[in-house]
Design a protein around this nucleic acid. Structure first.
Length: 262
DNA sequence: TGGGCATGCGCAA
DNA sequence: TGCGCCTGCCCAT
């Protein structure tokens, strides 16, 4: 389920539950060697940077997690049930436990290791320290399509397939337009949109990109099928034309070629 | 029961 | 560019 908003929400929740607590860290599955180094340590803070999650411990050690495509956290009140066989890491305090399953990366790093990871990432729209100008400069150096460039975490951190499809749609930009043909004004608009959507995503744990008046749901919960204009839609929610789906660098891209121009 | 799919990414060629 | 890996869940059989 992970685009950046999911990771920021996890960091926030984990920090709320574990900050200042001595936590038990284990690896029921046995594939997280670093668990023993963290076990019994004091959880200092949770941090998200793009799609990377960090658990900082007072010892200076840091758990680094990347969920990949399949990774998930399951949350339990204490006492938690026995972990499933696939549980890579369990972090437990007196009040809560979280179980990590299916992650691509779960490792212990130090501050230098964290810095090296962050140094590979573009600005993250959900971080206060983000500089959108750095992403624009990276776009200007790229001739690949903007659709491909937006998914490159070195350009922009935290944006995945859904936000990519939708932000290009609402700004009327075709994914195949060369990244270096995006204007500063267009980029500033896209950044602003992403910040708003992703902050909303952290709060609601959903990706909703439509204008609720436009889709005819003025109040209440917007159903999933009406929550995105083109992502996984057969027809454009705005004009009704067929949505085109094609492969860009191994990921499905979605666009309404009437609403989005090269 | 089993196939297909998923909001990701790194590697080999 | 294609493939492999990580796992849960939903659907068809």
């Amino acid at each position: 389920m992970p685009e950046g908003h999911t990771i920021h929400r996890l960091a926030r929740d984990h920090q709320r539950w574990f900050r200042g607590e001595r936590v038990a860290v284990s690896s029921p599955q046995g594939r997280f060697d670093g668990a023993s180094a963290l076990d019994g340590g004091t959880f200092e803070r949770g941090e998200a940077y793009g799609k990377h999650l960090f658990h900082h411990f007072e010892s200076g050690l840091i758990a680094h997690v990347h969920l990949g495509l399949f990774g998930r956290f399951f949350t339990h009140d204490a006492p938690p049930p026995p972990p499933r066989d696939t549980c890579r890491m369990r972090v437990a305090s007196g009040g809560r436990a979280v179980d990590l399953v299916g992650a691509t990366i779960c490792e212990v790093v130090d501050e230098d290791g964290r810095a090296a990871i962050v140094a590979r990432l573009g600005p993250d729209p959900l971080r206060r320290d983000a500089d959108p100008g750095r992403a624009f400069a990276a776009l200007q150096r790229r001739s690949v399509g903007i659709g491909q460039a937006l998914m490159d975490q070195k350009v922009l951190a935290g944006v995945g397939n859904v936000y990519r499809a939708e932000v290009l749609f609402v700004h009327g930009i075709h994914p195949d337009r060369p990244a270096n043909a995006i204007t500063k004004g267009e980029w500033d608009g896209m950044w602003e949109t992403l910040v708003a959507w992703m902050r909303d995503g952290v709060r609601t744990k959903r990706i909703v990109t439509v204008d609720r008046e436009e889709v005819g749901i003025p109040t209440g919960r917007i159903p999933k099928r009406l929550s995105r204009y083109v992502y996984k839609q057969e027809h454009c929610l705005r004009c009704g034309d067929e949505v085109r789906r094609w492969d860009i660098a191994g990921r499905w891209a979605y666009a309404c070629e009437g609403c989005q121009v090269i």
